[in-house]
Amino acid sequence: MSSGIVEMHLKLLFDLDNLLNDIDEPKYKKIGFKVEQEEKQSLLRTRKALLKKLPRDMADVYERLKERYQRAIAPVDNGFCFGCFQKLPTELLTQTKGMITCPNCGRILYWRKKQ
């Protein structure tokens, strides 16, 4: 599987996990968006399927980080990890291949595309 597809699956998994967190928020329910248990179960099945599409080591790291921090991926902004707000080493910022994790908190790092 190409790294682009893996990255897309990983990002979608992360977005779905955020969705799952939000629908359980009391504030969200108060706004008036109600999600039935059946639909939530279906989303959990999609999540499981996405996880299976990731390389095993990546899926394990993701799940472990999610368990620890709730959000396993942290965007990089201005050379900082937006998970732990620590400055990242310069050599890391030039690395382009593979899954890159923050040396301080361990979260998977994500560089947003500039548009």
Binding site: L16, L19, E39, L43, R112
Partner: peptide
């Protein structure tokens, strides 16, 4: 993709001719 997954959980059409599709995204 994320917005459509959200729609699968139940429409974000809140009635009276209005819809509010929404999600969080890493993008």
């Amino acid at each position: 993709s994320t917005l459509l997954k959200r729609e699968e959980l139940g429409s974000t059409g809140i009635g009276k001719g209005i819809a509010i599709p929404h999600c969080r995204s890493l993008a």
